[in-house]
Design a protein around this nucleic acid. Structure first.
Lengths: 336, 336
DNA sequence: AAGCTTTACGTAAAGCTTTACAAAAGAGGT
DNA sequence: ACCTCTTTTGTAAAGCTTTACGTAAAGCTT
């Protein structure tokens, strides 16, 4: 049905080899042939069949990207950056949403493997799988983004928040705060545990040990942040600064504050992990720790492409998160 | 390098045809052979090469999705819905960000065509292109989403806001408002023009003609909304209700209000087009017109898949936007 | 047991490219 | 004119599947 290289060859009165050579430019062809071929290609509207080409060349010029959910702004940005870098180098990307389901993930990996992607970027669920092993053992380059699985020898690109959290703690202490609280995510998740540990450790190192009643746990969703903040405000001796471990819980916290006549930052300072546009737009704008997602996505894609083209050794990369100071943190209330 | 169907056939002592038959299940094979083949497949870890299969079967089980930018929440949701529906039916999707550039769009379309995608979903830039024509003339199903190009006979799935805008106008009039204003997007863009026209027409039909000074133009970005709102508030006789034509401009408007001691909704009511999660979370929560994006994306994918499987005639589909009433609209101030 | 139908399997072609190798043509030298 | 070397072009294989067609075996009928 579709026009093939044979049709072009026939119409131009040459062999398919010549057509291929003209089109790939990899070999020398006489001017006369070249013109004849080109005009036939034009005339017939010939577009090479990438499936056949890939089959023959053993490279599909396609990458797989497996994330839990593109609707998570973090992964949206990663997807965008990956796609940019990939298309820049002539690769397409197949997008997969695994939804935290190991089964879904495995089945996507299977498909991607069968489609012979030249490389894979994945934010893996907890454990490895035979499907993931397939990639590794057939030498298809893989890089982890954001999350990781140990001992597979697969490079990981991720954001480290420790330093930024340190900065935040110092920022708060410098403002004069002595009673810091944290609304943590589930401590069994990687980001949940890491952020909590980092915050507690930094505070302790600087002599601002955080008492147990100032550590609240949420589930990274808004309502849990609201609830936690309510509890904190109700304490006999409430904290003067609160760090929410992600954006949604921070919003919940802000709502809890609004329900009372407590003001931000005059009465209580608030800061968040994971910056988003909307934090610029709230009243007051929220001090937050930004994950440089574009950079992250970009670095991930560059790493993978480098590995594919053998230009680069796989090597994990950690990007520092960045503290963005806005107006939601101020000096603690003067009254003691 | 990779293990092929030949290897399996060899190890199981059968022909490749038999292996293929076992795996496809399309033809009858004896139990004994079946087991032998299956255990060889298992043992060797054979995964069929989808490129070869696609080449032979003339179907790649892959769709192309071309949007301007996945980072636009609207398209993020579309992408997610499309991917869901596609994977449900065994299709993968290649994601492309055309960035409003006709050149980029054309080049993506070229690649997708060469990769022989079985179908294409695209939110097209203004005009058609030879690349788009390629799809049409080779009979590859295409559906437009959100935007459209006339006269190509390609079905479009999009959201129509007219009815919801009508509801909004009625809602405002019922609350007692007589002075309605609008912060419009650029009238030369499709959404900009449509929303403005709809709002003006609905108001006029109901006897609430909107004077010129109550019509302001922004660029769909925050700052322009802020500016427009400032101007509206400074009028000798300011409007009692303002409709912002998208979410960012609405946020700007809210900021402009916060700069003054005007209260929402007591002194002025505000509503927005294009709902987002954050509107639930602002103070007050914003009445907005929601585009049912999931539904839209889903319908688009279903339509395309239906066309691919010849189960459905291409037919445009228009989904109604929906008014979500929250607290940012109330009765106008009693004082006249 | 012959003849027929059905079932089970193998052979080989086809799907479209790219490319190793061979062959032909051209150029240059004597 | 002949030889050698280089350049240009063609032939055919290979990349991996699926499947039309054909054959052999097995089952059934009479």
């Amino acid at each position: 049905m579709s026009v093939t290289i044979k049709d072009v060859a026939l119409e131009a009165g040459v062999s398919t080899a010549t057509v291929s050579r003209v089109l790939s430019g990899k070999d020398t062809v006489s001017m006369r042939m070249r013109d004849r071929v080109l005009s036939s290609v034009e005339g017939l509207g010939y577009r090479p069949n990438a499936l056949a080409r890939s089959l023959r060349e053993e490279t599909s010029k396609t990458l797989g990207l497996v994330v839990s959910n593109v609707m998570n702004p973090f992964f949206t940005a990663v997807a965008r950056a990956v796609e940019d870098a990939a298309s820049e180098k002539g690769y397409s990307v197949i997008l997969c949403n695994a939804d935290e389901s190991p089964d879904k993930e495995a089945s996507y990996l299977d498909v991607l493997f069968q489609k012979r992607v030249d490389g894979l970027i994945i934010s893996p669920a907890r454990t490895s799988s035979p499907q993931l092993q397939s990639f590794v053992s057939s030498g298809v380059p893989v890089v982890f983004v954001d999350r990781t699985i140990e001992d597979l020898g697969i490079p990981t690109v991720r954001v480290d928040g420790r330093k930024a959290i340190e900065e935040l703690v110092e920022h708060l202490l410098k403002l004069g705060h002595e009673r810091l609280a944290v609304i943590s995510g589930p401590p069994e998740t990687v980001p949940g545990g890491d952020r909590l540990k980092a915050f507690l450790a930094c505070a302790a190192e600087r002599g601002a040990e955080i008492p147990e009643e100032y550590v609240r746990f949420g589930d990274f969703r808004r309502e849990s942040g609201r609830q936690a903040m309510r509890e904190l405000l109700r304490l006999r001796c409430p904290p003067t600064a609160v760090f929410a471990a992600n954006n949604l819980m921070c919003l919940g916290a802000l709502q809890a504050v609004k329900e009372t006549d407590v003001r931000v930052p005059e009465d209580v300072s608030i800061a968040s992990f994971d910056d988003i546009v909307w934090f610029e737009l709230t009243q007051p704008p929220v001090t937050a720790i930004a994950q440089p997602v574009r950079e992250l996505g970009n670095a991930t894609a560059e790493m993978l492409l480098g590995m594919i083209e053998k230009a680069r050794e796989p090597e994990s990369l950690i990007i520092e998160a960045e503290l963005i100071v806005r107006d939601s943190c101020g000096p603690p209330p003067a009254s003691q």
